[in-house]
Amino acid sequence: MSTALLLLITGIGLGAIYFLVASGLSLIYGLMGVLNFAHGVFLSLGAFLGYEVATRMGTSTWGGFAVSLLVGALAGAVFAALTERFLVQRLYERHIEQVLVTVGLALATVALFDGIWGTDPRFITGPGWMETTTRVAGANVPNDRFVAIIVAALVLLAIVLFLRRTRYGMIIRAGVENRSMVTALGIDVRNAFTLVFTIGGAAAGLGGVLASHYFGYVSPLLGQTLLIFAFIVTVIGGLGSLLGAAVASVVVAVLQQFANYYLWGTGDLAVVVLLAVVLLTRPSGLLGRK
């Protein structure tokens, strides 16, 4: 029982990190039709810069952790905004080329990170409390899981409020439904494109810092590995659906944890099987439209 609870909370914690990557991917795809292969790089950059800041300020201090989160989000946001403005937007409405450009960027940037930080993982620890566990109904749950869950929940709330309460949020929601009609109302959607990239990049950068604490290390491949699961999450949740991404993140991560523990380490395989089942029964995903 306590094992199951531990797996559940750990799974939700992992799901929180998946969500931070998948939310941006899903919004970007929903609004622009772009599959962003560079999204993992936003995460890795956030993780590395967060790591650099934390080691300079002291990894065990809460201040260092808070600033590393901030720097990670900022780094992801800036890199994402530049990517959209200078690479993706040049290929306006040419979706395949847009994908290719992000593939090339990811390839080049991961290699660059290899060159700067090396291919070996860099281990990181957080503030003392995050390295310990809390006893929940007999299960010893590592505290960094709770931090990941809280941050992801806040991000979800912030994005939902932004989408519901602001004009740009309204434009993004409308654009996900029917981009050409938005332009026909006299709205230049390209600003919204840059905005979703920026928001997605910030969430991914945050996810990078949290992932480095969840896994205990940073490496250039961290982002690419998480990206693949985030892709699966967005397809299962329904492309373009933020809520779908949130639900699917948790479902996928929890399934992965349970299958790894109870079904002889077959977590990743179980996720792919789930993907196949969803595609066969609901090709548009759990909460996708059409």
Partner: peptide, 8 residues
């Protein structure tokens, strides 16, 4: 002109 300019 692009669509949004036409509309504007």
């Amino acid at each position: 002109l692009p669509t949004h300019r036409v509309a504007q």
